[in-house]
């Protein structure tokens, strides 16, 4: 029974990490550049939830708890706008320069976000409300955290909606075409800049949603971004560079590893051993466990 609860916790954590990793891959595929401000976008999502909670609390009668799920549309919108700002300021002006330029501009953007949040909210940890209340419920004979189930359900809906758009719509086809051969996509009349902006908006909104999901259980501080981008990066490396499916599986593996090791030792040891495991994986399989050819991207 304890094993089932741990597994559920791991799936919930993995679902949130998957949102981060998928957002990272969306931008990576559209631009072939790494957005190093992505971790800060997760943090921004957490703080957007904190700010929206404060704003709504002023509008509602005292004592009314605001469920986190109500905040989700607002968090998605605000972080999508943040993504557009990253694209407009840190990517589009230098997209024809060497990729290292984008590394530097997005790192700089991330630092600006961190300091901005520090100035606005302070350095102390803050928490977002639970998605659908706290406590536990009986689910398939397992005592499950309400928040864990809500995280999983939210991530499934968001990832399912994204998969539908990518696989079933003209916009999704255009998106995947740009990921595979941007020049040829342009030569078919597809507006690459529009797709790039969309990738940043969607990718950052996914990061923001993860921020909302994680900021209840793990709290959020302005300086959390570095650890989160690293996990997204690891998920993508393990899963196979550029693959959305691989990123999701990579995120789940990280979460199971962390929860599993932490349950028998400690969180810091789990994090340390995670990097050891990643190094070993890459020594054996440099293309990642689920590495796949570039042709199958997105």
């Amino acid at each position: 029974m304890l094993g089932a609860q741990l597994a559920l916790n791991a799936v919930a954590l993995g679902a949130a990490y998957a949102l981060v990793a998928i957002g990272f891959v969306l931008v990576l595929n559209a631009t072939t550049a790494v957005n190093f401000a992505h971790g800060e976008s997760v943090v921004a999502g957490g703080f957007a939830a904190v700010a929206l909670t404060g704003a709504l609390a002023m509008l509602l009668p005292a004592g009314n708890a605001i469920p986190g799920i109500v905040l989700l549309p607002g968090v998605l919108l605000l972080t999508a706008l943040l993504g557009l700002a990253i694209a407009a300021l840190a990517y589009l002006p230098i997209r024809n320069r060497p990729p290292v330029s984008v590394f530097v501009t997005t790192i700089a953007f991330g630092i600006i976000v961190t300091n901005g949040l520090n100035a606005a909210f302070g350095a102390a940890p803050r928490a977002a409300p639970a998605l659908l209340g706290t406590g536990t419920i009986e689910f398939l004979g397992v005592t499950a955290s309400r928040q864990s189930l809500a995280i999983i359900a939210t991530a499934v809906v968001l990832i399912g909606a994204l998969a539908f758009v990518l696989q079933r719509t003209q916009l999704g086809r255009q998106f995947r075409a740009c990921a595979q051969d941007p020049e040829m996509a342009r030569a078919l009349g597809i507006r690459l800049t529009r797709i790039t902006l969309l990738a940043f908006a969607l990718g950052t909104a996914f990061a923001g949603a993860a921020g909302l999901l994680l900021a209840h259980q793990f709290f959020v501080t302005p300086s959390d971004g570095a650890g989160l981008i690293l996990k997204a990066y690891i998920a993508v490396v393990i899963g196979g560079w550029g693959s959305l499916r691989g990123a999701t599986i990579g995120a789940m593996l990280i979460a199971f590893f962390e929860v599993g090791v932490a349950s028998i030792s400690s969180q810091p040891l789990a994090e340390g051993l995670l990097y050891v495991a990643v190094l070993l994986v890459l020594l054996v399989r440099p293309d990642g466990i689920f590495g796949e050819p570039q042709r199958l991207r997105a």
């Binding site: 003209q170 995947r176 051969d181 996509a185 030569a187 078919l188 009349g189 042709r295 199958l296």
Partner: peptide, 20 residues
């Protein structure tokens, strides 16, 4: 273009529809 440059990971139908 020379070398066709179809989108390799898209299906035949998707390659056609994406240009529609």
């Amino acid at each position: 273009p020379e070398g066709r440059r179809v989108f390799p990971g898209l299906t035949v139908g998707e390659n056609l529809l994406v240009a529609g």
